[in-house]
Amino acid sequence: MDEKKVIIRTGFTEALPLAIAIAAYGLSYGVLAAQANFSLAGTVAMSLLVFSGSVQMVAVAMLTTGASLASVLFTSILLNLRNLLYGAALAEGLAPAKNWKWLLAFGVSDEPFVLGVSRFAKYGPDPLYFGTITGTFYAAWALSSLMGALIGNQIDPQKWGLDLAFPITFIALIIPSLKGKPVIATALTAVVIASGLEYLMPGNEFTIIITGILSPLAGLYLKRRSQNA
């Protein structure tokens, strides 16, 4: 019993700093969703049911630019591809949870992956730890989404410059991850492809999907070239 308490306390303590960062994203998401005409219930329901910052942010951003539901769904499938990697890496550490794995699977995303993999490498499988960190992140994400939606619903987006929040939030998300030539090449290629597509077909809804499929090839090419050099 004491051991379980220690694991829960450790999980909570280690998750807390990241939970604060997640809450900052959640706040932004809530404001942006309100701006994309999501109701308060819809904004919070998406956080409770989807629980994926990147998918939710991209979905509301695409809807704001007039994308169809089908293209939003296809883009989210592309974004979710990395969950296959995360799940595969976490599977052994969650194996003792047996049927609870189906619930813990809900936590397969960026931040729980980082903490979970590092914990399993040190102490072996630990579903309780993973459940604790996921629960902490889930609470932070849901509550901050609610707060963001409440703020976003109260103010005029244009007057307060909230329409600027989309690109600015994405810049703040992407800049810290631009490390290494392959990643930078992917981003620059995406800029070129997206600009070209918008120039040829202004306002079309396939820009994001086509760019998302093609631009990683530039990163792959550079990575392969550096490995073969």
Partner: peptide, 25 residues
């Protein structure tokens, strides 16, 4: 290769979203 590709996809999508907000028809 597939693993790397999956990791680069979000960078491409987010970059495209930023461009779509800066360059408007």
């Amino acid at each position: 290769t597939l693993r790397l590709y999956f990791n680069y996809v979000p960078i491409g999508i987010i970059s495209a979203l930023i461009i779509k907000q800066i360059v408007i028809p």
